[in-house]
Simulated assay, not measured.
Amino acid sequence: MSAKLFAICYVQACIDCLTQKFTAKDIIAIVRLSEDDLSKIIYLNIKAFVPLNEPNDHYIESFETSDVISVKGKFVSRDNYYTVSATSIKTLEFNFDDMPVLGINTFIIGITNQTIKNNDDNISLEFYVEKKVREKEPSNF
C-alpha cells in the first residue's frame, strides 16, 4: 500500500547532483506541528528529480535553502524522519516563523477484496487501515 503526502515545509538543506538527463535534489525539510511550540517538528528527507531537456514540463519549481515550499509526493516513515519522493514542489512566500502549521496530510491508496454492501439506501465498503505514521518528539541529527 502506498501513501501520498502533501506538506508545507521549510528547506533546511539541499544538495544538487547533476547527471546527463536530470538534476537530483536531496532535500532536508522541516514541517511545523505546533503554532506555540517551535520544537514540535517533523523532518522530511525529500528526493526530487528535475529533467534537464524538458523545459518547464515538470512540477518542481526552483527553490533555495531557507525557502518555504509545498511538497506533494509518496512517502515512507523512518525512525526519526520521513522519506518523500516528490512529484511536485512549489515555492511559497512565507518564512519559517510565518508558515502555516498544517502538519502532514496523507492519502492512503490500496486494494480491497471486499464487496460493496447495500444497507437500505446506503452503500458501504468496510476495510482496515493500520496507522503507521506517528508524531515523534524531535531529535538531534
Rank of each mutant, 00 (worst) to 15 (best):
E35R: 06
I8V: 12
D16I: 05
C14Q: 11
E64W: 01
V133R: 06
D16Q: 12
L92I: 03
A24V: 09
K21C: 09
T19Q: 01
V31F: 02
A7T: 12
K136W: 02
R134Y: 08
S70M: 15
E64F: 03
T91G: 10
F96G: 01
K90V: 11
S88H: 10
I108R: 12
A86F: 04
F6M: 12
D36G: 05
F63V: 03
K40Y: 08
N122H: 08
F96V: 05
E137G: 02
V11T: 00
N122G: 04
T87S: 14
I8L: 04
N56L: 15
S139P: 03
S66F: 04
K4L: 15
N56M: 14
G73M: 04
E135M: 05
N45H: 14
A24C: 11
D67Q: 00
R32C: 04
F107M: 12
T112V: 06
T83Y: 07
V31I: 13
K47C: 09
N119H: 07
A13N: 15
V133Q: 09
T65L: 02
N105H: 12
S139M: 08
Y59A: 15
T83K: 14
F107C: 13
H58V: 06
V50E: 14
K4Y: 15
K47T: 13
T112R: 03
S88F: 07
L102P: 01
F141R: 07
T19G: 00
Y43T: 12
T91R: 15
T65G: 03
I15G: 06
P55I: 12
K136P: 02
N45K: 14
A13F: 08
D37R: 15
K21S: 14
V76P: 00
L33H: 15
I42W: 06
L125S: 06
E64K: 05
K4F: 15
L92E: 02
T65N: 08
I60P: 09
L102Y: 06
M1L: 11
K40S: 12
I30D: 00
C14I: 14
L38R: 15
T23H: 09
V50W: 11
A29C: 02
S88Y: 08
V68M: 00
S85A: 10
F127W: 10
P55V: 13
D67S: 01
I41L: 01
F49G: 09
C14K: 13
T112K: 02
D16T: 05
L5T: 08
T83S: 14
N118H: 06
F63A: 02
D79G: 00
V31C: 05
K21F: 14
I104V: 13
N45D: 14
E135N: 10
I116L: 12
A48L: 09
K131Y: 04
V11Q: 01
E35G: 05
L33W: 12
I30T: 03
R32V: 05
A48E: 08
V68G: 00
R134H: 07
F127N: 08
E137M: 04
Y128S: 10
L92K: 03
I27D: 06
I46P: 09
I69E: 04
Y128Q: 13
F22Q: 15
P100K: 02
E130I: 05
L125C: 06
F75P: 06
C14V: 14
K117W: 03
I46C: 09
S139W: 09
Y82P: 00
R78S: 10
K90H: 12
V68E: 01
I8E: 04
S77Q: 10
T65Q: 11
